[in-house]
Amino acid sequence: MIAAKNIYKSFNGKYVLEDISATFEEGKTNLIIGQSGSGKTVLLKCLVGLHGVDSGEVWFHDMEYAALSHRQRSEMRRKIGMLFQSGALFDFATVEGNVMFPLALFSGMSKGEQRDRAHACLERVNLLGARALRISELSGGMQKRAAIARAISLKPKYLFCDEPNSGLDPKTAILIDALIKEITVENNITTIINTHDMNSVMEIGDKVIFLHSGKKWWEGTKNDILDAENVELNEFVFANSLAKKARRMM
């Protein structure tokens, strides 16, 4: 469980997040949705501690992140897997090297075990064949998938995904969503996903938080979202005409 309490975050005096409170539950896929620029990435980075917050608290279970000592913080970070919006794969290593990187640092496994684990992770994202390639040789979608493999390599307790399926074709996007959901349930992970893909919302939106210009505008589940009475949310949800038609038919 992760809880955010009254988070404020500004850059150069301009507030990007204002008074965000939310809880993200274990074993569930928690979604943060919102338009481009609404503050999703900043919120995610505040939650994992990559951005300091102006005020407010982030709790991982019963521990407040800001109150942790340096050492506790490092330990905590080992339990976090994160998929960055840009992939953030290390271009000094191969695909396999990237997935093995956190394993080599923290797992205490032998080289052979690390490689086996890396292969298992790559297998899950259907990328085993590309394990020897350099990052620059991958397509955008392959980079996303490799980044997912790296994020799950250490079997994290907390998984953060910044737009895991943007830039993927619809079929792969569904596979990735399903994979994240599966891992979440299997290992009882607290998973937080940024997305603006309504497909993902309808597939895996156990809990959905809608951000609008840095504020939490709405909160609910995928079942409530279609008949929520909220102008901005409706604009977001029914932005594409297919969804509009679906709504008229309801």
């Binding site: 919006q85 953030a88 290390f90 640092l105």
Partner: peptide, 16 residues
């Protein structure tokens, strides 16, 4: 470029 492609964030997040 490691900074803007979030590679530095990724290293930090791994506790390095």
């Amino acid at each position: 470029s490691m900074r803007i492609t979030e590679q530095i964030d990724a290293l930090e997040l791994m506790g390095l």
